[in-house]
């Protein structure tokens, strides 16, 4: 047995482990409404939305090497467009979601087009400034966005109104989106993108348009963040400006880094872990940020490659040792 395993390449073994665990996770998720109480089902749905949000950030951040400091802008614009269309115009859900996605894409294209000529932190700071500009407009434009009150009692159709309906719709959209992002990451485009991240000069010298690759990654990330925003509205039936304040973006960044930004499922892991931790500490103590802050400091200090990055490193080195 050990011998047969020894003949298999590390990658294949890893992919078997991954495939089986993903299969188990999907089954567990499919039957979640059967064993979760109402509150925990809501929590599970919120986590799913956060998973998509964090993974959408990792496309430009982890794979593209772009320091996107304000991803919540696109999340917020997706959520707000969807909410305004449903509430003010009574547009059906699917067209409204399509328009919301489109507006997130267009904004991402605009911001990205301006920002991608910059490198490193300067790119990040400009996304931060522009994101905050969008936030400030949303925060104060009472006639259109409801200002700091936000928009409440958004009419979503009956089918996705129940917790279980919302759960399944959101689960389906999140899984499809994650598969799409995975396809993108493994596609020739995705591989080129990672090459651009690791060695831009060399890529440029072999004729790759690095600016376009970065822009496309940024816009795609913005689009998926917009979808996550739409899902958030389906779940909460309300939106308010804090979802696109810069601190929200930093929270998501921490999830991505803690989970591991060079692994595909790292951000998802970070989203699950930090949302659960926040809820857990929220139940037992009033001052949960105190614990959460300390945990984040400790983990960032001692696991710089993220939890999944750390685990993958360990497993790979273990298998490699055995095979050798």
């Amino acid at each position: 047995m050990l011998n047969i395993m020894g003949d298999m390449s590390i990658e294949r073994k890893m992919s078997w482990v991954k495939l089986i665990s993903i299969g188990i996770i999907v089954i567990v998720l499919l039957f979640a409404p059967a064993y979760l109480s109402r509150y925990y089902l809501y929590l599970a749905t919120l986590i799913l939305v956060t998973i998509l949000f964090a993974t959408s950030l990792n496309l430009p951040l982890g794979y593209g090497g772009l320091l996107v400091l304000h991803q919540a802008t696109f999340y917020g614009v997706g959520a707000y467009s969807f909410a305004i269309l449903l509430k003010e115009t009574g547009t059906p859900v699917l067209p409204a979601a399509a328009v919301a996605l489109l507006s997130a894409l267009i904004l991402a294209l605009f911001i990205g087009w301006i920002c991608v000529r910059l490198r490193g932190l300067y790119f990040g700071f400009l996304t931060l400034a522009m994101g905050q500009l969008v936030w400030a407009i949303v925060y104060r434009w009472y006639d259109f966005t409801g200002g700091d009150d936000g928009i409440h009692a958004i009419p979503v159709p009956d089918m996705i109104r129940s917790e279980i309906g919302a759960y399944y719709v959101i689960l389906a959209v999140v899984i499809v989106s994650l598969l799409l992002i995975y396809r993108v990451v493994k596609s020739p485009f995705g591989l080129t993108l990672q090459a651009v991240r690791d060695n831009p000069q060399r890529c440029e010298s072999v004729g790759i348009n690095i600016r376009n690759h970065r822009l496309i990654a940024f816009v795609m990330g913005g689009g998926f963040a917009g979808i996550a925003g739409v899902l958030f509205v389906i779940l909460e039936r309300s939106v308010a400006p804090p979802i696109m304040f810069w601190t929200h973006s930093v929270e998501i960044l921490i999830m991505v880094l803690l989970g591991g930004m060079f692994t595909f499922l790292g951000p998802a892991f970070g989203a699950v872990a930090l949302t659960l931790l926040a809820t857990f500490f929220g139940i037992f103590t009033e001052y949960w940020l105190l614990f959460l802050g300390s945990i984040k400091i400790i983990m960032l200090l001692f696991l710089p490659q993220g939890v999944l990055g750390f685990v993958e490193e360990k497993i790979t080195s273990k298998i490699r040792n055995k095979t050798v």
Partner: peptide, 24 residues
């Protein structure tokens, strides 16, 4: 000697910590 993004996030975690100390 850490990467910039890590520095940003770690000092942000300090923010969370002190916000709660302040509330306490």
């Amino acid at each position: 000697n850490r990467p910039r993004l890590m520095q940003l996030l770690l000092t942000y975690a300090v923010v969370l910590l002190f916000n709660d100390v302040t509330k306490l």
